[in-house]
Amino acid sequence: MTGEWAWTTEARFESRLGAHLPLLNEVLAHLAQLGWDGRDYFGVQMTLEETLTNAIRHGNGSDPEKKVQVLCRVSAERFWMSVEDEGHGFIPTEVADCTADENLEALGGRGMLLIRAYMEEVSFNERGNRITVATQRGYRPPPTEDE
């Protein structure tokens, strides 16, 4: 399986706002080199931003003592990543409705909605502090009822 990947990285960073950006930019640079562009590139960019900031802000509560652990693999056709924080975890089905007035500025609901739209596979460990996502170039989500 690992032989299929063009580039793999492991990273660990403090839970400070913006601490994820060097990794995010490094992954995007590799994707661009591998020919990712347009909607596919944008979707991975969104997934990186939302999963990593969720781990920093919501998982670890922006506590610099707590670390975010990332494993990421990319190829010309596929993207795979796991992001683990040191928080208590959350239950994905209990993320608040992001369209409710009191949640308008919440990151979690809208971020998860976007991740699920761009990734072919999204899963969590039992504790809920590790998200694993995967997709392939050209993946488009199935149409929703109101489309």
Binding site: E49, L104, G111
Partner: peptide, 13 residues
């Protein structure tokens, strides 16, 4: 070219 869900939150507010 790109905006995060946090930016969307500001636009909604």
């Amino acid at each position: 070219e790109f905006l995060s869900s946090a930016a969307l939150g500001k636009l909604i507010s």
